[in-house]
């Protein structure tokens, strides 16, 4: 579905990604794990076009998407839950969700999806007329995920959805990610520092270090891998 081939991305003269190749098949959950500064977020930025790759090729459903503007890439069916949630703080919860469905015109379908996310996160229904900036961190993460779902994406990119959240909320968020994958048939690309949780829900995983992919295997195998255990699982 999504394929990155030999991607090299730069910030000015500084190279952040070196020869990254990743492929994601339909309905998979794929995770990308690695330490701070390894280039995980940059990988997502290159996919969504905010920091375009300088070399290499990105194809989505067989069509090349590198070099396109971010809003064009979104229209192909790629949605992102960015690092730090990035809720529109002065828009209400409902308006934030409306923005998620910005490119859609099927009103009745949008309302159905709205009911769906309210079912996933009842707290959002309660707070629908509250400004996004007044929500707690966990609620904002739920809103960010819901906003992305409202686009009915074919591929959902999640950047550190567990960052800074209470363990109970983290569990809930990962549960929802699995649920979206099975119920909405959405393919998921998960970037995480919380390697254990991420690999547990993933079909396959990639390990990233200093801008390079150093390992790739099934989620279960990576969890058993001694190097991964030592470096990312702390056991």
């Amino acid at each position: 579905m999504l394929e990155l081939k030999n991607i090299e991305t730069f910030y000015g003269n500084i190279q952040a990604l070196r020869d990254i190749s990743i492929h994601i098949e339909k309905r998979e959950i794929i995770s990308l794990i690695g330490a701070n500064g390894a280039g995980k977020t940059t990988t997502l930025m290159s996919i969504c076009g905010l920091v375009p790759a300088r070399f290499g090729k990105i194809t989505f459903m067989g069509e090349p998407i590198n070099g396109l503007s971010p809003d064009k890439i979104v229209s192909f069916g790629i949605s992102q839950v960015p690092e730090g949630r990035r809720i529109f703080p002065q828009l209400t919860v409902l308006e934030n969700l409306d923005m998620g469905a910005y490119l859609r015109n099927d009103k009745s379908q949008i309302n159905e999806d709205l009911e769906y996310v309210y079912e996933l996160f009842p707290i959002l229904a309660e707070r629908r007329h509250q400004q996004g900036g007044t929500l707690s961190g966990g609620e904002q993460q739920m809103l960010a995920i819901s906003r992305a779902i409202m686009a009915r994406p074919r591929l959902l990119l999640l950047d550190e959805p567990s960052l800074g959240l209470a363990p109970l909320v983290v569990k809930q968020i990962f549960g929802i990610i699995k649920k979206i994958n099975s119920e909405q048939k959405t393919t998921i690309f998960l970037v995480e520092q919380n390697a254990y949780q991420a690999l547990k829900v993933s079909n396959r995983g990639y390990v990233m270090e200093n801008g390079c992919i150093t390992m790739t295997d099934t989620g279960a195998n990576l969890l058993k891998n001694p190097d991964v255990k030592q470096a990312y699982l702390g056991i």
Binding site: R86, F88, E95
Partner: peptide, 24 residues
Amino acid sequence: TKIGKAMRATAQDKSMAMLVGVNI
């Protein structure tokens, strides 16, 4: 209106607005 909402969203967070598909 839709364009009004897009304007407010863009004013608050430009790159996020792009990520939901707003043509800045």
